[in-house]
Amino acid sequence: MSKQAPQQGRTIRFRIKRCDGPGKPSYWQEFDIVPEKNANIISCLKQIAETPVTVQGEKTTPVVWDSGCLEEVCGACTMVINGGVRQSCTGLIDVLAPNNGDTITLEPMSKFPVVRDLWVDRQRLFHNLERVKAWVPIDNTYSLGAGPKESPDSQATHYKLSECMSCGCCLEACPQFNIEEDESKWDESFIGAHAISQARLFNNHETGKQLKDERLEELSGKGGVGDCGNAQNCVKVCPKEIPLTESIAAMGRATTIHAVKSFFSGKK
């Protein structure tokens, strides 16, 4: 490739969709900065926070964002960058804006309520993990001893699935997952690829299996795996490259078998 190294000392522009608080209208502001060497989106947001003056010379409040690990394992810094959802901590300026005068557009995720500016409330994402009981049931008052053995094969599958960091990219890109501010409707709205994949992880886990039927019941109901429309955006935007569409199909299969079984066994 004949691409030149990004030139140092260049000026780049940030176009940021801002919002002063829940329910408040959003508006756009632009900032010019000279990014530091090896800068990323977060370091640039820090620079803007130091001198929050727009391109028009108007003094404003610092832009608010969320972040944690700064190494793409916590998911907190997820936002929509140049129209696509991803983590901002690993959004390198040399890649996103290599030339003088390049613009980077930042928006909060659209499927979650905005807390302020680029910071959103991902509560529903965690709520949906609770819907499928995405955990291993080991709480007790005495030691349960060692758990059953996991085969190396299932360990390999589980490892990939366990890398999910609850970032919400798969939900932001999903045409079937849409913003729902009314919490009472969460249990009937589409649960999302992340939760379907976690249900698969824990249903295949030797101890997690104990809650298998409850997870499959939840996934069979309204807002469950049947609501997936197979657009397969989720798998393409997942930063951890989790095989979400395989998880969706695997849970489709599991719910099919579950339905046949409960029809004949008469449990329900």
Binding site: G84, P175, D227, G229, N230, A231, Q232, N233, K236
Partner: peptide
């Protein structure tokens, strides 16, 4: 009617298939 097409943002072939 439960879905909201977003091919303008995510112009993947599969997403077009969906829409």
């Amino acid at each position: 009617r439960t879905g909201k097409s977003n091919t303008s943002r995510y112009a993947y072939q599969d997403n077009w298939r969906y829409s």
